[in-house]
Design a binder for these strands. Sequence first.
DNA 1: AACATAAATGAAAGCGCTTTCATTATCTAA
DNA 2: TTAGATAATGAAAGCGCTTTCATTTATGTT
Lengths: 333, 333
Amino acid sequence: MATIYEVANLAGVSLATVSRVMNRNVKVSDKSRIKVESAMEQLGYKPNSIAQSLASNRTNRVGVLVSELSGPFFSHMLAIVESELREAGKHAIITAGHSDEEKEKDAIEFLLSCRCDALILHIDAVSDEYLLELRQRDIPFALINHQIEAIADCCFILDNEQGGYLATQSVIKLGHTKIAYISGPEFKEDAMMRLKGHKRALSEAGIAFDETLHYRGNYNEDGGKAGFDNLSDHRFTALVCANDEMATGAMYSARKHGLQLPGDLSIVGFDDQVFARYTYPTLTTVNNPIAAMGSMAATWVLKEVYNINTSAEIVNLFTPKIVFRDSVETHTS
Amino acid sequence: MATIYEVANLAGVSLATVSRVMNRNVKVSDKSRIKVESAMEQLGYKPNSIAQSLASNRTNRVGVLVSELSGPFFSHMLAIVESELREAGKHAIITAGHSDEEKEKDAIEFLLSCRCDALILHIDAVSDEYLLELRQRDIPFALINHQIEAIADCCFILDNEQGGYLATQSVIKLGHTKIAYISGPEFKEDAMMRLKGHKRALSEAGIAFDETLHYRGNYNEDGGKAGFDNLSDHRFTALVCANDEMATGAMYSARKHGLQLPGDLSIVGFDDQVFARYTYPTLTTVNNPIAAMGSMAATWVLKEVYNINTSAEIVNLFTPKIVFRDSVETHTS
DNA sequence: AACATAAATGAAAGCGCTTTCATTATCTAA
DNA sequence: TTAGATAATGAAAGCGCTTTCATTTATGTT
């Protein structure tokens, strides 16, 4: 592997000049530039990124942390983030935190030990204090799906309250009034916001929130099954779930109980995951633009940390949309 | 950030000794070790991995290339590979090749430019010649789902022929004799092997392969839909698809045509993707242990490249299993 | 033409480690 | 006790770059 020395030799210039033509920021005369470029060409020279990192104190690595690598939810986002970063010559180091505080901290420490220039974090468990402390160590990071007032400029969030509102509103508009709700884990901020939106939609329609029509789920398919089983003693014609997995579980249980879908029960999910198009009936759900949020976070990193594409417009708040499919039906009676 | 100098100073030993206690391979007296370790502790010393890489010519990076980052198929594998590598202190750099020759080459070049110590590749398009040439540049790599005779030791493959056989056999055993088949793209090796297995199962049962019951699909949901639409003029009671996506598409079309599933038509998929448990009816399919193969590739890298866990047993050929769910039914008539 | 100023270049230090090789301390056996 | 062997240690070079600072070369001005 040719080094910068050999290039400098062949081109008849100094190391410094070769380095300068690589890092286009400093002026080099056309004459030297041409000599250097042709020498590089001739030697098939490829800069050693490790040496560059050591000398420049820049690794060109961006650490990415998501809850789960497996599962379709994050993979689309990862795909976009990776390609956007790669486009800019940055390397993504991807890690999972598994919604566990210790594991999330471990993962972040790991990313730091990789000497990442910046981090893109989708965290569930780690405390705001920890993140603010991280900020002190002055390693820049973007937060996805989590808001900290003090550093709002690097937070990219979905309006989960509005999403919860839309989900419930969608069945209200179809004439439903007996509406059950399966919420997500209480420690998840987004779950609580979605529930809040649900309540707003109810109250706006003059429907009282009925705790007996509310089940606290766990965001998993099981939770949806258990939710339906628990609620099934009560009368309701629509069921809104705080995410798609639970909606799927609820569908399963509903059918077990002999219900026709969507005739006997309309079901709404949240997230618009890939499989929402595969369920039967296909699932009406609230679109969660997680990929767009990831992409925005990557753009932010490129802009703020690397000064690339500085004209890009940064949007911090994303608005959800409802996606109608076959799992809901007009309620007439 | 403390450096090795400060540690050496505080401990009253030389750089070399500190370096030795970090890289446990060389003997250091207990006295020095203790001094060094407590100095590290005191300073909160963390080695700079970039400097280590430059000096040792080892980056501790493993490049991972898959067809798609998005989509559930690879994400589970990535999750396992990442955590296995991280466990061993190696960083995974993850990239997608999008089943396109140019993009795959780009991705590989990118991984090389990251100075990865080894690669784990799931490729679709790149030629064997290119890979053999890569081998010359002596960067070690493992191949997933692709076999090259000359370097079979680093190839980790599924017995796709056997899988295709099992899929078709499963419906034959249930009494079906009119069996349609939707195959994958011809340029994909695995697709062709699965088709071959299908034919073997047929001939073993004394059923002639009928080209009019064969549709050449594209591995996507569309392909499944188009496949069923095309085949629907003919009589068949079972439909075997070369992957789960196409099975899903076929289900969709079959229902559009007014068929009851599985009563009127039994459907079998291939891969056992996550969503196979979400379809309605849930999908009988052939399990593709892609995650186990990835994990084995990671183990191989750890063993061959880093001499870690050298006692691990390496298996190159994986055997598929059929997973029975609700999409198939006994054929009686 | 002579000078002031700006632009381009090169020498060399340094990034934080690993590793070789020479040196010193420690141990063994007679 | 001491020679000889072995184990532990340190000095220093080097990994391939970037970057500062001093120097040289080009450009503009009168």
